[in-house]
Amino acid sequence: MKTLEIRGLSKTYSNNTHALNDVTLKIKEGMFGLLGPNGAGKSTLMRTIATLQDSDTGAILFNGVNILENKDDIRKKLGFLPQDFGFYPNLSALDTLNYFAVLKGISKSSQRKNLVAEWLEKVNLYEFRKKKVGGFSGGMRQRLGIAQALIANPDLVIVDEPTAGLDPKERNHFHNILSEIGEDKIVILSTHIVDDVSDLCTDMAIINRGELIIQGSPLAEIDKIRGKIWQKIIKKDEIDWYNSEYNVISSSLFMGSLRINVFSDVDPGNGFKAKDVNLEDVYFKMIPQGDFNGGK
């Protein structure tokens, strides 16, 4: 059983941004979702696990070995798709993936050729294999990034905002790929898209302002607030009053009006109706509405 243990990880940047504050997590084999708004510290945590930057304090243990002290060892077992991924624009998809396969230690040319073809098929790029990557759309580049992260059959996979730029069909295809590989590996899915975690992950955490808010299974976290989320449609100019009178956790436009969701242990009355709870409600309850902003 593979395990990844993060102990007391902290990171402050030179501009005094506290990106991580004493984060502790234990992650087992399977799909693990890391949720949080932009600026929560997700990318900082992913880059630190991937040994691309150092923390100020703390340790990260993969199968009991501190990866911050054994970076070369973990890099052989790691597949990483960062949020911003660059390619050589004049290389074809075939040559690009072959290049990454060489970097990842796949030295036999026949094995490399077969793996490159296999992964180009899996990410629906085989028919474009001879096309220069510089001419790819954002979604095509993302799919090629997924292939390079997985081609060497890594034990630990980190994907940071992986469905950004993918249309719904591509997103579903990507979910299928991750679900296939997630059975005997640790796969960390870092995202602000709640549905990605809800669809794929059996364990999850929510991080905000560099701090761990919760860790647990999505179903267990949903059960904790079941029967405590209430919904009502109001006029847009009424929102300030409702914010002052109720614990409004989220709002969205609905046919020119506002649909609001509030958290309450008891029926708040006043026309509110019980809502069928999902993981998005857990997320909004844990993250104050004013915290959805940009950052690292």
Score class of each variant (00 low, 15 high):
Leu219Cys: 02
Gly256Val: 09
Phe136Trp: 06
Gly86Val: 10
Leu115Pro: 00
Phe62Asp: 05
Asp73Met: 14
Ala59Trp: 00
Glu211Tyr: 00
Val194Cys: 04
Asp196Pro: 05
Leu35Gly: 09
Ser179Met: 09
Glu245Met: 14
Leu150Val: 03
Ser257Val: 00
Leu61Trp: 05
Gly30Glu: 05
Ile74Pro: 08
Pro37Glu: 09
Asp184Ala: 04
Phe136Lys: 07
Arg141Lys: 15
His173Phe: 01
Asp184Met: 00
Asn208Met: 02
Lys71Gln: 14
Ile60Gln: 02
Lys235Val: 01
Lys236Asn: 13
Asn124Ala: 15
Ile233Leu: 02
Asn16Tyr: 11
Asn66Glu: 13
Lys273Phe: 10
Pro218Lys: 05
Gly58His: 14
Ala101Thr: 03
Lys71Cys: 01
Asn261Gly: 07
Gly295Pro: 04
Met140Gln: 15
Leu258Met: 04
Gly36Leu: 08
Ser92Val: 12
Pro82Phe: 06
Leu115Trp: 00
Thr17Tyr: 14
Ser198Ile: 03
Asp265Ser: 11
Leu219Met: 12
Ser10Ala: 09
Val23Ile: 14
Asp184His: 12
Val65Met: 13
Gly271Gln: 05
Gly271Arg: 07
Ile229Glu: 01
Lys296Leu: 10
Glu161Ala: 10
Asn270Gln: 10
Ala220Gln: 10
Gly134Glu: 02
Leu4Asp: 01
Val277His: 11
Lys104Leu: 02
Asp84Val: 04
Tyr242Pro: 02
Gly271Thr: 07
Leu178Pro: 00
Gly135Lys: 13
Asn38Gly: 14
Lys224His: 08
Met140Phe: 09
Val266Pro: 00
Lys235Tyr: 06
Leu34Thr: 09
Asn63Lys: 09
Pro168Ala: 11
Asp56Thr: 10
Ile188Asn: 03
Asp223His: 10
Trp241Val: 09
Asp155His: 13
Ile106Pro: 03
Asp184Phe: 01
Lys104Asn: 07
Asp95Ile: 03
Gln215Ser: 12
Gln231Lys: 13
Val266Phe: 05
Val123Arg: 01
Asp155Asn: 15
Arg129His: 05
Leu219Thr: 14
Gln142Tyr: 01
Gly227His: 07
Asn15Thr: 02
Tyr283Asn: 02
Lys273Met: 14
Ser264Gln: 09
Val116Arg: 04
Ala117Met: 03
Asp54Gln: 11
His173Gln: 14
Glu183Met: 12
Arg75Thr: 11
Ser264Leu: 12
Val116Lys: 06
Asp73Thr: 12
Asn70Arg: 13
Arg112Gly: 10
Thr51Asn: 05
Thr24Gly: 10
Phe292Tyr: 15
Glu221Cys: 06
Phe254Thr: 06
Asn208Gly: 06
Ala40Gln: 03
Ala205Met: 08
Val159Met: 06
Ile188Gln: 00
Phe136Arg: 04
Asp267Thr: 06
Phe100Asn: 02
Asp237Ser: 12
Gln231Thr: 13
